[in-house]
Simulated assay, not measured.
Amino acid sequence: MRREEIEQRIQIGLAGWGDHDDIYPRGTKSGDKLKIYSSRFPIVELDSSFYAIPSPDRMVKWIEQSPETFGFIVKAYQGMTGHTRGNIPFSDPKTMFQVFRESAEELLRAGKLRAVLFQYPPWFGCEWKHVDILRRTREWMDGLPIALEFRHQSWFQGETRDKTLQFMRDEGWIHSICDEPQVGEGSVPMVLEPTSEDCTIVRFHGRNASGWQSSGQPNWREVRYLYRYNAQELSEWKRNIIKLLESTKTCWIIFNNNSGGDAADNALQLMEALGMDLPEMPGPPPYQLSLFED
């Protein structure tokens, strides 16, 4: 595949823009980071929306701070995916979805919404009641591009695997493919199957098996995503991505292994492996460009 085609069909970015100090000049203010980030990467996963739904005005501000061609993958609010434990600050589920829609539609109108990512929790197994929830979600999010990521392996076990993928195709879900530790039913296998002809998401969570099972422990969020992909692992993913592009027009790739400052470095390594132009960064790259061979 030629470089021009790769540049058109693959977009690589990070989860969030605030936690990657190596990509900013020293002393960069928080309010200036998106403008700098979006000059260096073409896409970002907006993960703060998982914790609180951004106001439409805040979305407009982010639209104005980023280039016209920049894209956002917006993570669905935790109350919409069943993560929230305790009170949800909305009178009913439909109101919650509507408030989220009003915010996401600002990005849609600006041509910057790539997808709304619904990542469901480890206790969201393959059951009829959960299938009904997915159908209702599709209905309430009609008109918006939506992506689906599971955290319970029952969706991809045995014959259920093909049924899940077909369900996603029939219902219009973009597949968010995971690279994550394989540590029991609370993780999903790497299923290299697009469900949309237009686009596929790949999210790199790292392979820290012990950290993946650290929920409830102090600083568990930092431990879970503490992992640096090595050259061989990224070279394997180069081949996987090229294979995915045989069945989908575009791949959006997000590095979520943020804890140790590895996400940005790994993103640049993968870009280099794919022969993509690298963005200018403050200071020399901390990785060895000659690690990769075709």
Rank of each mutant, 00 (worst) to 15 (best):
I201H: 08
R161H: 12
S176N: 05
E197P: 14
V202E: 01
G184W: 04
Q182W: 13
M168W: 06
V188F: 06
A209C: 09
T160N: 15
C199Y: 08
Q166V: 12
H205K: 04
G186L: 02
G186T: 00
K163D: 11
S196V: 05
G211K: 05
T200Q: 04
G186E: 00
P189H: 01
R161L: 15
F204W: 07
Q182A: 12
W173I: 00
T200F: 06
G172N: 04
M168H: 06
R207A: 06
M168Y: 05
H175A: 13
A209Y: 05
I174N: 08
F204N: 11
L192Y: 02
D170K: 15
G184H: 03
E193Y: 02
E159R: 11
M190D: 08
S187W: 09
Q182S: 11
F167W: 04
L192M: 06
I201Y: 08
C199G: 05
I177T: 01
R207P: 12
V183I: 10
D179C: 10
D162E: 12
F204M: 14
P189K: 00
V183D: 03
D198A: 15
H175P: 15
S210I: 13
G211C: 13
S176R: 00
K163H: 15
D170W: 13
A209T: 08
E193Q: 08
D162I: 14
P194Q: 00
H205E: 01
R203I: 10
G184E: 00
R203S: 07
